[in-house]
């Protein structure tokens, strides 16, 4: 079942624009990623499972002058690209992991154009396959709130790099038909290395690690299920230098 709200949300946020000294704009629109996601549960019906990372992603990660902004729709974009496959029953497991829509806003301190460091706040709506779902747009979803710190460094004339760490809380009373009363927390670590190839343009590589812990009621069971989701990704996208 295609979730109308998700498609409308995707359409609405397609209108997010971009304007252009310090910093770069990593545009994974679309971008590619490789990696894996491990889900460990203490539920005997679900057990443990592992799947490869979803290949297409949709994310903008940028720092300009003082401000750091991030818009992520990786889970939604992957889920949307699989509609034909889901309808045909060709998806063995939904690789939906990340955000349907999430944003970060941060302010960087630092003089000159070489370095910035600062805090950021995070807000969003994410998804993780906590019930071994095969329907990419119907995996458990949850609201996220959190914060982190980021560090930006210019290295020579061709390389710019960034590191981000943070902590987030997750919650949703009704995550999907199977998963209720979801709560949890997690950490993330992301690094970005951008290399200038031509004029102001280049390639960005982002290794990322996410560790999330969840507690929820699965399928109306009396005992709650605890799950750990660990993801390791390597993302590649297009970058514009400011």
């Amino acid at each position: 079942m295609i979730n109308k709200k998700l498609l409308i949300a995707l359409l609405a946020f397609l209108s997010v624009g971009m304007y252009a000294q310090v910093g770069f704009n990593c545009q994974f629109v679309p971008g590619l990623q490789v990696g894996s996601v491990k889900v460990k549960t203490d539920n005997t019906r679900l057990k443990d499972y592992k799947f490869g990372a979803a290949l297409p992603i949709f994310m903008i990660d940028r720092i300009k002058t003082k401000w750091y902004t991030n818009l992520e729709m990786n889970a939604l974009y992957y889920a949307t690209t699989q509609v034909n496959n889901v309808n045909a029953g060709k998806v063995k497991i939904a690789k939906t992991e990340g955000a349907y829509i999430a944003g970060r806003l941060g302010y960087g301190f630092g003089k000159g154009d070489a370095m910035r460091v600062g805090p950021n706040i995070n807000l969003g709506w994410g998804a993780s396959n906590l019930d071994s779902s095969k329907r990419t747009l119907n995996v458990p979803s949850y609201y996220t709130i959190g914060g982190g710190v980021f560090f930006y460094q210019k290295i020579g004339s061709r390389i710019r790099a960034m590191a981000k760490v943070g902590y987030e809380k997750y919650k949703n009373k009704s995550a999907n038909d199977n998963v209720k009363g979801l709560s949890g927390s997690g950490i993330y670590m992301e690094g970005t290395v951008a290399y200038n190839v031509y004029q102001k343009f280049g390639l960005a590589v982002m290794p990322a690690f996410y560790s999330k812990k969840f507690s929820y009621n699965y399928g109306g069971e009396a005992v709650s299920t605890n799950a750990k989701v660990r993801s390791l990704f390597l993302r590649i996208g297009f970058v514009k230098f400011f």
């Binding site: 949307t80 690209t81 509609v83 034909n84 496959n85 045909a88 060709k90």
Partner: peptide, 9 residues
Amino acid sequence: FGTQGYNKS
């Protein structure tokens, strides 16, 4: 990648 009526299977 999402075509109504397209039956891939």
